[in-house]
């Protein structure tokens, strides 16, 4: 099976690669269009800032390539956000697969909630085979200051001051706000489920 991790300027690529290695898979890390188009599964990771990541993707025309993909695609963290319509971060128009807007957590000065959210939080209202073997309210590891609102494509919800989409799905596209590659056993189950899609 050919698993391609899209290489671009906002990667935590090494962690994702090692996580797949632990599942016995040797992924290809590439920004080559033919590699990506011919993959069985595509992983679109990302940590960083939305507008600079989106500019880079556009420069390499990877935004158009990603849009056309027919095989299962998994966006992780910023990767998921870039698959949404628009992000408040740098007022960025994104790839537009998922019907969600990316907004900044805004709790006001007196709130005890810190931004970014860093750490383990629960996922619930799970609605996809991506979560097969993962229990309602299992914990995943999150690091983010922006979130996707709830929408028709929501397949998992997390509560951090408000309820938001911690996972999204539309057709062959999946996105998770948390880091499955850093979420201990629950994250490994999710990655294994994606590989089986």
């Amino acid at each position: 099976m050919k698993i391609v991790i899209i290489k671009y300027n906002a990667g935590n690529i090494q962690s994702v690669k090692f996580a797949l290695n632990r599942l016995g898979i040797e992924p290809i890390v590439s920004d080559n269009v033919n590699d990506i188009l011919s993959a069985d599964k595509v992983i679109f990771p990302g940590v960083g800032e939305a507008s600079s990541a989106m500019n880079y993707l556009k420069e390499k025309q990877l935004d158009q390539v990603i849009k056309q993909l027919k095989q299962p695609v998994l966006g992780i963290c910023l990767g998921m956000q870039l698959l949404c319509k628009h992000s408040e971060e740098g007022d960025t128009n994104c790839i537009g697969i998922f019907d969600a807007e990316i907004k900044k957590f805004n709790f006001g000065k007196d709130s005890e909630l810190k931004v970014p959210q860093i750490g383990w939080n629960k996922i619930f209202n799970l609605k996809s085979d991506l979560f097969k073997g993962i229990k309602e309210k299992d914990y995943m590891y999150f690091v983010h200051g922006y979130y996707a609102n709830l929408c028709n494509d929501t397949i998992a919800v997390t509560d951090y001051g408000i309820n938001y989409s911690s996972a999204l799905n539309k057709n062959n596209f999946f996105g998770v706000q948390f880091h499955p590659e850093k979420s201990a056993e629950a994250g490994e189950i999710l990655l294994a489920n994606f590989i089986k899609m």
Partner: peptide, 11 residues
């Protein structure tokens, strides 16, 4: 660091 990253599944 690389050896650690290969072997653990938490941050």
């Amino acid at each position: 660091v690389s050896r650690i990253a290969q072997n653990i599944n938490i941050p």
